[in-house]
Design a protein around this nucleic acid. Structure first.
Length: 404
RNA sequence: CGGGGUGUAGUUCAUCGGUAGAACGCUCGGUUUGGGACCGAGAGGUAGAGGGUUCAAUUCCCUCCUCCCCGACCA
């Protein structure tokens, strides 16, 4: 990608009202654009990062047997009435009418929709278990959208739903999902804790939250030093002296509903091997995809900009040509062509701007490796890790080899 | 929803009862090229909306709206 063609360009100053770091840096870098409170466009750079994040999640979901699909975002009132959530969740649910006065909800979750699918397509114990997931937009009537993209009224989420013939099978899978979630967040480089928490409008049962340690977090968790034992402040009832208090961002949540909460109300059953009609055991599992984007910026940045972990960076290398001789026809162009042909994602700043501006942009955008070609580099190329201070001069072949 | 703040050029801000100005950005020309470089020229505004006071309102008053923060709320 040539910087001259990238939409949009970086912005020098952060929006005046922005206080959250993810808000300032993502807007300045041109990763996101705000339409209104709690509502954001994922611009090309931001979408690249989201694509990386969703791919990591997809790999781990598929690895435990999840099947990806896509469900609608506009739901009929009737299906929400089946569980009573048209009323009980009305505060978070956007409800609307069409011109014929038919009532709809904009999706804030999909349990009811999945249950409807299951009762239509599941009839035997042989059809179970099932684990289905999708990435889609969630609409939530947040009384107060805040924290940049961390809490929106419209955001991307991965939600997984599983149905099982027995509670034992459900709990076994629940643990597998829990492990997969930890793997996902660790792959992204986060310090993550699993906490028990309250289920809100989703369930009366205790649920499990995945908390990434970050100052900007809205949640307070108690962590036992040297262990993975952690509790959300909401449900903590231990000896505070034995724990460390940390701020954290909730990036995932999993709910083992069992056969009562949804299956009973929506009559989702199957015939077991003993010929008996039984209800399915059900669970749902969510990861806030756009929240992870914001969380990454909150956790990985310095005073100059973002420092993306390699696995979710929008590009792997930021190539900068300095001086008139290093633009379109120069060596920078050759390096760009070679890297691109090898399938390495490169952002090439081939503009006529000054070095300072280009470097400032490279720091802001946070691509893991900065490559510079200039008079000073001679036949070689300058390599600088975004998380390093020092630069090094390496052979072009060496740089290419490292990026492969 | 309660409390606080905010709204003027694309952005960040200044101004002030007498019809608006800077910086950055943008356009054109030129000089530059290792940390947001420089010179010259230029475009760009219904001062959030509505109402009121006044000879005159961006400025004072009222209402509404926006966005941000705190709280309540929250997979």
């Amino acid at each position: 990608m040539r910087y001259s063609q990238l939409f949009p360009k970086t912005i020098r100053e952060a929006p005046k009202d922005a206080t959250a770091i993810n808000h300032k840096l993502l807007v300045r870098g041109g990763f996101v654009d705000q339409l209104m409170a709690g509502s954001w466009t994922l611009l090309p750079l931001g979408w690249r990062v989201v694509t990386k994040i969703t791919q990591i999640i997809r790999e781990e979901m598929d690895a435990i047997g999840g099947q990806e699909m896509l469900m609608p975002l506009m739901h009929p009132k009737e299906i929400w009435n089946e569980t009573g959530r048209w009323e009980s969740a009305s505060e978070v649910m956007y409800q609307l009418k069409d011109t014929r006065e038919k009532e709809f909800a904009l999706s804030f979750t999909h349990e009811e929709i999945v249950m409807d699918l299951l009762r239509k397509h599941i009839s035997s114990y042989k059809d179970l278990p099932v684990a289905i997931y999708h990435f889609s937009t969630k609409f939530r009537n947040e009384p107060r959208a805040t924290g940049g993209i961390l809490r929106g009224r419209e955001f991307l989420m991965k939600d997984l739903y599983s149905a099982h013939a027995t509670e034992k099978d459900l709990m076994g899978f629940y643990e597998r999902v829990s492990e997969a979630y930890l793997k996902i967040f660790k792959r992204m480089g986060f310090e993550v804790y699993v906490t028990e928490a309250a289920g809100g409008v989703f369930t009366d049962r205790q649920t499990r939250e995945f908390q990434v340690v970050a100052e900007a977090g809205e949640d307070t968790i108690y962590v036992k030093p040297g262990t993975h034992e952690a509790y959300n402040k909401e449900v903590f009832s231990g000896n505070e002296a034995e724990f460390e208090v940390k701020r954290a961002i909730e990036v995932g949540n999993i709910f083992p509903f069992g056969d009562k909460k949804y299956a009973e109300k929506m009559k989702v059953g199957f015939t077991d091997r003993d010929g008996q009609k039984k209800l399915v055991f059900f669970a749902s599992y969510g990861i806030g995809v756009t929240r992870l984007l914001g969380t990454a910026v909150e956790v990985f940045h310095d005073d100059k900009g973002i420092v993306w972990p390699k696995v979710i960076a929008p590009f792997q290398a930021h190539l900068v040509g300095l001086g008139a001789g290093e633009r379109e026809s120069g060596r920078a162009g050759e390096v760009y062509e070679r890297l691109t042909k090898l399938g390495i994602e490169v952002l090439w700043d081939e503009t006529e701007r000054g070095a300072g501006e280009k470097f400032a942009d490279a720091d802001l955008l946070g691509i893991p490796v900065r490559l510079v070609v200039s008079e000073k580099t001679g036949d070689k190329i300058e390599w600088k890790g975004r998380n390093r201070r020092e630069t090094e001069l390496v052979e072009i072949e060496e740089a290419i080899a490292r990026l492969k």
